[in-house]
Amino acid sequence: MNGDAALLLLADSRLPAGGHAHSGGVEEAVRRGTVTGAGDLARFLRGRLATAGLVTAALAAAACELAAVDSGGSAGRELRAACDPGPPPADDAADGVPLWRRLDAEADARTASPAQRGAARTQGRLLLRTARRMWPSAALDALARAVPEGPHHPVALGAAAASAGCAPRQAALAAAYTSVTGPATAAVRLLGLDPVTVHRLLADLAPALEDTAHVACASLDDAVPADDEPDGCGAGHHQGRQPGRHPERQAAWQAARWHALPGHSAPALDLLAEGHLTNPMKLFVS
């Protein structure tokens, strides 16, 4: 199994996880007149992918990797079993709860706009709800315990991807994909654009989607633990070198690299997200 089929399910706009009600800033851009047709939309989508899309892809990859090593995926369990034949630990720390909180905090730090954080948490909460019934796993349970108000969407997406059998690169690709397909669909509905024209734009973005997933994973693979940030999750003494195969250590080592993940910001998206909240006639959640 290589996770391809699971990836299709996860990225499908029909996945019942509330994504259809989010326009990713397009509704407000339409209201402000900065997106009026296919040309504007193409530039909007490309810019969104290069910023928010890359950030969510990297966070999703990190979450997928954490879920796999931490406790959720089969690889993680095998790893754990190989190191520690005893019964699985039940306490929060051993289940990776602090690590999930830390990764979610890294997502917070990359999302300055409170409106965007709210939308990301709403989508994350709904995705987690759906994923826990589709692909039940200890990692998803731990994530729900760690962030009961709902994790950021890419964090939930990465954890769901791992539970479905996807690799970090596939999680990143799903995140990049949904970062542009939702807004594209919203534009079709709001502007009455020809849906084939809009799907042509998405087809043109396909190479950029692959690149984004690649860069997102490279940012994770190339990162080294921070040397000047005391770490809240106890990873401080694993600085520099890759630890052995001990899962807790490995997870902590992973966490110490998250500081370097991309944080590409898009000021216009921030302004649009906040402006959207002031629209009394809005159709979309975000």
Binding site: A29, G47, A52
Partner: peptide
């Protein structure tokens, strides 16, 4: 105190972001 508060990259002069209504308009 070691906890992330804000992490951001701004890209300027890249084709993908220049003139995008999602980034700088």
């Amino acid at each position: 105190a070691g906890r992330p508060l804000l992490r951001q990259d701004l890209l300027v002069g890249e084709e993908a972001v220049d003139g995008s209504p999602a980034v700088y308009g």
